[in-house]
Computed example of a mutant assay.
Amino acid sequence: MTVRTQWQIGAWTFDADSARLIDGEKQVPLEHRAARTLELLCRDRGRPVSREAILRQVWSGRSVSANSVAVVIADLRRALGDDAAAPRFIATIPKRGYRLGEEAEAADALPQREPAQPRARWRLATACGIALLAAAVFIAGNLGAHHTTVVVTRTANDTGQAGYQPLATALHALITDRLAERGMDVVPTDRGSAPVRRQHMLWLRSRLILWNGISTLSLESIDASGHVTWSAMAVAPPNGLASETIVQLKRFDAKVRGTDQWRWR
C-alpha cells in the first residue's frame, strides 16, 4: 500500500518527505516538528487534531513547554501566508485543537443524490425547525450579562530587539488558543482592523518588554468605555514566559467570569 506524502494546500504543495512547501519555483523548508505537525493535519484534513495528539506523535510524549504547539502552529501559518485572525488553512477549534481546511471538491466529483421524497423533505424541515428553535433557546439563555467577547490584539514586540519577535508571535497564539479552549468568544485581530467597541466586549492587549533586562509580558483588558478593567505582568526568562503567561490568563479568566475560584486544564 502506497503511503501518501504530498498534499495540496491552496497554491502550495506540501511534500512531507522533503519537509517543504512548494509553489512553482518557490520552496519554503519547514523545521522537522512543523513538517510532522502539518503532516498530521493533512492526514486528518477536515477534522480537529488535538494538542495532546500533536504532542504525543510529534514530540513522542516528551515533556515540553506549554507553548510548543502554539509556536509550531504560528510557524506553519507564517510559512503558508495564513492569518490566525482570519485563517484560510489552519483554524483553531476551541477545546478541540487545530484543523486543516478542506479543499473544495469539483462539482462533477460529488456523488449524485436522488431527489428527496415529499415526506422525507417534510421530516427534514420539521427536524431543522426543532433544531433551530433549540439553538435559539440555548443562545438566548447563554447570551446574558456574563457573555463577553474578548478581542485579543497582536502582542507588540516593544523590547527594541527584532530577535524577540518570534516570542511575541508565539505568545499571541498562546493567549488566543488558551482563552478559546476555555470556551470564551475570542476574536484575534490586528490593532488596525479591530471591530467596533460594543457592550460585553473586552479588549485584551499585550506587550513584550524588557523589565530590568528580563523578558516581561504586560497584559491589560479594556472595556467598551475605554477603562482598564484588569492588568498584570508575566515576568520570566524567554523559555519560562509561556508558563507565567498561563498563570496570568487564569486570573483573567476568573476576572471575566466574576469569581475568585477557577479551574484550568
Results as ranks from 00 to 15, higher is better:
T5E: 03
N239T: 12
V49Y: 05
V49C: 10
R251W: 07
A84F: 10
M201C: 03
L202Q: 04
A70L: 02
L110H: 06
V256C: 08
F14S: 01
A35R: 08
Q117V: 06
A162Y: 03
R78C: 02
I73H: 01
A34N: 10
H32A: 10
P48L: 01
I9H: 02
V3S: 11
A127F: 02
I222D: 00
A34E: 06
E181R: 13
Q57I: 05
A116I: 14
R191Q: 07
S63P: 04
Q112V: 13
G141D: 10
Q8L: 07
R113V: 13
W122H: 07
Q161G: 03
G213H: 07
T2I: 11
I93H: 05
A53E: 12
L210Q: 11
V64T: 15
G24H: 09
R182N: 07
T216M: 09
V3R: 09
R207L: 01
L41R: 07
M201F: 02
A136G: 15
H172M: 04
I209P: 02
R36A: 13
S243P: 00
G46P: 10
S221Y: 07
V72E: 10
I73P: 05
R99H: 02
S60K: 13
A131T: 14
A173H: 15
N239Q: 15
W264S: 06
I73N: 00
Q248I: 03
V186G: 12
G144P: 01
Q57M: 07
S231Q: 13
W12H: 05
P87D: 09
M1W: 03
W264A: 08
A136S: 14
K26L: 12
V72D: 05
V151G: 03
L132G: 01
V186I: 15
P238K: 09
S18V: 11
R20H: 07
W122N: 02
V49S: 02
D190A: 14
D15A: 08
K255N: 11
W211A: 14
G258C: 11
L167I: 11
V186D: 11
G183K: 12
L124F: 04
R62N: 08
D23A: 14
R47G: 01
V196E: 12
L100P: 00
R113G: 01
V187N: 05
A11D: 14
E220W: 12
N157L: 08
W262H: 10
A106Q: 12
V71A: 13
D75Y: 02
R47F: 00
E52G: 09
I222V: 15
L143W: 13
Q8Y: 00
G81S: 11
R51N: 10
A104W: 03
